[in-house]
Design a protein around this nucleic acid. Structure first.
Lengths: 159, 159
DNA sequence: CGAACGGTCATACTTTTGGGTGATTTTTCA
DNA sequence: TGAAAAATCACCCAAAAGTATGACCGTTCG
């Protein structure tokens, strides 16, 4: 949570910088163009409409872009959590490795050791080793207890 | 999904109508104001900047508003559903008896057959018989698969 | 009544799982 | 580069789980 907050803030300021940059750039270009044609077509009656139209289009575009930019960052914290959230810290805390976690997830899906072995392209013995270490780390002695333990701890990606 | 799509489309067009309305209104007001002061201050060099600035502010405002309007509709469908509700019909449908259901629930709690036998004051063999029939009715061949199946079907009182 | 169903238990057998130990290879990281 | 961690595999043994079959008892219901 801390991490994602920090990221959000950084993006916010980056967005602001880009906004100012585009704002300045657009205005600068516009002024240059206008200075070039100002004295040549000043007498024409439609210069106001052209001028206004260009500015209108440009700034409405910037406005839409800015609006999207700011609101697409904001919705992030709104995300409501479903009770058992995926907790990556617990995994490191318990020293569970990637492979062990894979095995755990397949166990919770109801697969046998042999099915897991086939799915991971390893031998049955390897799966047994992984599950044995897993059970040790989860402090359980059977796959069904491991399933409950994993749900308690919020170790599973999918529930 | 269909429903929320339709809703989004409707909102989109409503937003567009409002946008056009404001666009026209703003432009109209602007022209009136400008006509009033056009001949009085035409000679002044800063008329272009004032004109452009007004239009810029107005349309950037409209742009931001439009941007917010379109993106603030999206977050609505985030509503997450709590999947499993207790379904008594499924139990009768599958012909699962009281005792079998008890065994099923204890299995999902991670108990071994022996522990279940002790808790229900019956023999280990009886538990095996119950679980065997249970697996048949659930169309599975292991307790871990039975757990998943039971959750799918919403057969469990507590989740 | 008697058939059907649910609950109980048993025996025998196979498969799966879990525990223990050791070893080799690969990856990671200080 | 060199040690630690992770991943892989093997073998053995015991416990647990699962399959199959048969039997007994009590309740229920047509």
């Amino acid at each position: 949570m801390r991490k994602s907050h920090a990221t959000t803030v950084i993006c916010f300021f980056e967005g602001m910088r880009k906004t100012y940059f585009l704002y300045g750039l657009g205005l600068g270009l516009l002024l240059i163009v206008l200075k070039l044609i100002e004295y040549q077509f000043l007498v024409r009656m439609h210069i106001f409409e052209i001028y206004g139209g260009l500015i209108a289009v440009l700034f409405m575009g910037i406005g839409i872009w800015a609006g999207l930019k700011f609101t697409h960052k904001a919705p992030a914290p709104i995300i409501v959590q479903v009770p058992p959230a995926f907790d990556e810290n617990k995994i490191k805390e318990l020293g569970i490795s990637k492979r062990e976690l894979e095995v755990l997830e397949l166990i919770t899906q109801g697969l046998t050791n042999q099915e897991i072995a086939d799915k991971l392209f390893v031998s049955l013995n390897t799966v047994k080793t992984h599950s044995a270490r897993l059970f040790e780390k989860l402090d359980v002695n059977s796959r069904t207890k491991a399933i409950n333990r994993a749900k308690e701890l919020g170790i599973l990606r999918v529930n």
